[in-house]
Nucleic acid binder design. Structure first.
Length: 708
RNA sequence: GGCGUGGUAGCUCAGCUGGUUAGAGCGCAGCAUUCAUAAUGCUGAGGUCGAGUGUUCAAGUCACUCUCACGCUACCA
């Protein structure tokens, strides 16, 4: 679908449990915004849709921790997101939210259709239900007596004493670990989408771009890592996926369906359908028919996402859409990789991020500067890195010295020589082009060069190569500088006024072209440029086409006789102090001691004394084969030696741990892990960013001592 | 461990289906220039294209092995 009649663009729905940072922008929003603004300027019928993803368990948990309600959490972030997106200039046509009734209806309707068409595999199982907690219990939240060995604290999925694999309903005297209540058996039904049946057509669609026997898109236009990721999943074999969950915050499974009570749509049936509900909301307010955008073969659907979302958008959501039958599938999923920050991964929990709203507050009026550097370092093909000094260099050297200074030169000279009026000139006047003195050029031949260069920018945008497009755009500014440099109007004005007129007129055409072409990337700068030239602002209504048509016809973008305004600076430098302040705000991992996991329920002393903690010394250590995280340790308790498997290999090498003193839970029932029997468990403290530390006695203590 | 993507000048990155002396921007050195926010233009130095083996008349570009980074996945009672 190269020449689609209309385009629907979606950006990943941000999850409403944390503020927006630059990593989000780099992944799914900036690239989409450039693409959309450009296509509007190409006169395309295009809709740009997004919204807050507000359902799911993580939000409930956050609400409990913060002693508030899920609704308050999502309201807060929904507002923050809107401010951030607006501030940085992401031009959504509609920003919706999945807590909206329209979304609930839409996703339920979708579910109903799949249900009625028999697309689901219904699996009813009997599960334990905790009446006090009012929820179904996951296997590991149930304990009871093992039917095989009479061990009295077997988990719902496995007895650690005898190692047998269990199902919760096998347990004798089951108890809920949440409340201590005896759970009741209750039937629960979930609906699964048999993705395994979709493998064949998915493969054809992804690898060959063929859907229902027709060429749907060119697989070459998809990014390597996107196709690679999908193939990896297909090769691994797809499994049926549950489309519902026993949750308490989200979209209800339609009530008329048997067994729907307490069930919510799982994220697969919820978030991506948010794109559809957002489109409906937009269409309703703008007199459009949303079906044109989702159900017409002549529409190109594009999902802009980060790489963590590839499988979701390339396999699961398409399967859901195809199962419904009325919907089109994405033409492309231009996923970006990740952006790192100053040498480290961006992390919300570690506060290692640049928050969009903080940036807007700290550096007001510099939205385009952030956009510029983010586009320049956009992780299109591989992970990339944001550094404040890189940001400073790029702004000062490229935006100020090259672009803004070029514009300033042209405007100042025009005002100086012609009182701000675009000069009339002789078309036969020879001038120097950007190549220099080796080649004579004319005004009209240079406009054709400009046309070609603008076309190159456009081609890159169409191919989702935004950094390349930005480079090509900046090259136009460089060529403008070259034209001035080679023709030296400040010298020539003394003996060849006619030549200066041609050069200055051409330069003004360049600036007018830049005013238009920067718009998708740097909308605010584009606006300032238009004001500077006293031209109408970009309306995102076919402006690019108009410009290209004029150039192709040999017409001018800014007419002789037109009066421009006096000079003012387009961008200003960023000083070292500003950068130092921002760098200082990045404080690595000084985590407020927040209770990530609440204190568990009280136990009585008798429970505590059941656990036999002992000191021990590591005498041997080796990696467990075929497992990244596991070390097999031999521990000396003084009176005996034991083998223990521990998940610490990512933090400690075998050499480092030999000789360490540790604390061991000595009477934990043995369990086989990766084929090795582990006789106990080593105590480790875990920080909130996943780092591990031994919990051990002071150096030089004997092994086998009792700990209490 | 399995799978995927990447590892190219000091830094940030381009290099499509293998084909002459491997490219850009920044930084660095020199020259020119002053209209401009000490901006601009020109020239130059800088790379055994992660390591190794192979296929080929020819490999950064293909195959295999290894290695490192990141992601997904398994194992972390």
């Amino acid at each position: 679908m190269i020449n689609a009649k209309r385009i629907l663009v979606t950006s990943a729905l941000p999850y409403a449990n944390g503020p927006l940072h630059i990593g989000h922008l780099a992944g799914a929003y900036l690239s989409a915004d450039i693409y959309v603004r450009f296509q509007r300027m190409m006169g395309k019928d295009i809709a740009f849709i997004c919204g807050s993803d507000e359902n799911g368990a993580a939000i409930t948990i956050k609400a409990i921790k913060g002693n508030t309600t899920p609704q308050k959490i999502v309201d807060q972030y929904h507002e923050e997101f809107k401010v951030a997106f607006k501030g940085i200039g992401i031009s959504f046509d509609y920003y919706h939210r999945t807590s909206d009734p329209l979304h609930h209806e839409t996703s339920q309707e979708f579910f109903r259709k799949l249900y009625a068409d028999g697309k689901f595999e219904e699996r009813t199982t009997e599960q334990y239900y905790d009446a006090k907690a009012e929820q179904f219990l996951a296997d590991r939240y149930i304990k009871g007596t093992c039917p095989k060995c009479d061990y009295d604290s077997a988990y719902g999925d496995q007895c650690e004493n005898c190692g047998s694999t269990l199902s919760p309903t096998d347990l004798i005297n089951p108890i809920s670990t949440l409340t201590g209540e005896t759970p009741v058996r209750k039937k629960t039904t979930h609906w699964y989408l048999p993705l395994n049946e979709d493998e064949e057509w998915l493969r054809d669609w992804i690898e060959n771009g063929v859907l229902d026997g027709q060429q749907h898109h060119l697989p070459k236009s998809w990014k390597n890592h996107v196709i690679g990721q999908c193939k990896s999943w297909l090769d691994g074999g797809l499994q049926p996926r549950a489309m519902t969950r026993d949750l308490d915050w989200g979209v209800d499974v339609p009530q008329e369906i048997d067994g729907s009570e307490g069930k919510k749509l799982y994220v697969w049936m919820d978030a991506p359908i948010g794109y559809i509900s957002a489109t409906k909301a937009w269409a309703k307010e703008n007199g459009k028919d949303w079906r044109d955008y989702w159900q017409d073969e002549e529409t190109a659907l594009l999902h802009f996402i980060g790489k963590d979302n590839i499988v979701f958008h390339c396999i699961i959501f398409p399967s859901i859409l195809k199962a419904h039958g009325d919907y089109i599938l994405p033409t492309n999923v231009p996923a970006n990789q990740f952006m790192n920050l100053e040498g480290d991964k961006i992390s919300t929990s570690r506060n290692w991020a640049i928050w969009v709203n903080d940036y807007l507050k700290d550096l007001p009026g510099r939205e385009d500067e952030l956009r510029y550097f983010m586009i320049k370092t956009m992780p299109e093909q591989k992970d990339s890195e944001f550094t404040w000094s890189g940001y400073q260099d790029a702004i000062n050297n490229e935006l100020v010295n090259n672009l803004a200074n070029y514009v300033n030169r042209v405007v100042v000279l025009t005002n100086k020589y012609y009182e701000g009026v675009v000069p009339q000139f002789d078309e036969n006047q020879e001038i120097f082009g950007p190549i220099g003195e080796d080649e004579f050029a004319f005004h009209d031949s240079e406009l054709l060069r400009l046309y070609d260069d603008l076309n190159d920018v456009a081609d890159s945008i169409r191919a989702y190569e935004f950094r390349a497009a930005l480079t090509k755009l900046m090259d136009i500014s460089t060529k403008g500088n070259q034209i001035l440099q080679f023709n030296e109007p400040w010298k020539t004005i003394k003996d060849d006024e006619e030549k200066v007129k041609a050069v200055m007129n051409l330069s003004l055409q360049y600036v007018a072209a830049i005013a238009c072409a920067t718009h998708p990337f740097l909308p605010t700068a584009s606006e300032k440029l238009c004001q500077l030239l006293n031209l109408p602002l970009i309306a995102e209504d076919g402006d690019f086409v108009t410009m290209m048509d004029k150039l192709a016809m040999g017409e001018h973008l800014i007419e002789a006789g037109h009066k421009i305004n006096s000079a003012s600076h387009l961008f200003s430098r960023i000083d070292d102090e500003t950068i130092a302040t921002q760098k200082a705000k990045l404080v690595p991992a000084v985590q407020e001691v927040e209770n990530e996991s609440p204190i568990k329920e009280n136990i009585i002393f008798d429970d505590f004394v059941k656990i036999d903690f002992r000191t021990a010394k590591v005498v041997e250590a080796e990696k467990v084969p075929k497992a990244d995280k596991l070390l097999k340790l031999k521990l000396d308790l003084g009176f005996e030696q034991r083998t223990v498997v521990s998940g610490i290999a990512e933090h400690y090498s075998p050499e480092e741990v030999v000789g360490r003193e540790v604390t061991l839970v000595a009477n934990l029932a043995p369990r086989k892990i990766r084929g090795v029997e582990s006789q106990g468990m080593i105590l480790m403290a875990e920080s909130s960013n996943g780092k591990l530390s031994f919990v051990a006695p002071d150096k030089g203590w004997d092994s086998g001592m009792i700990v209490r």
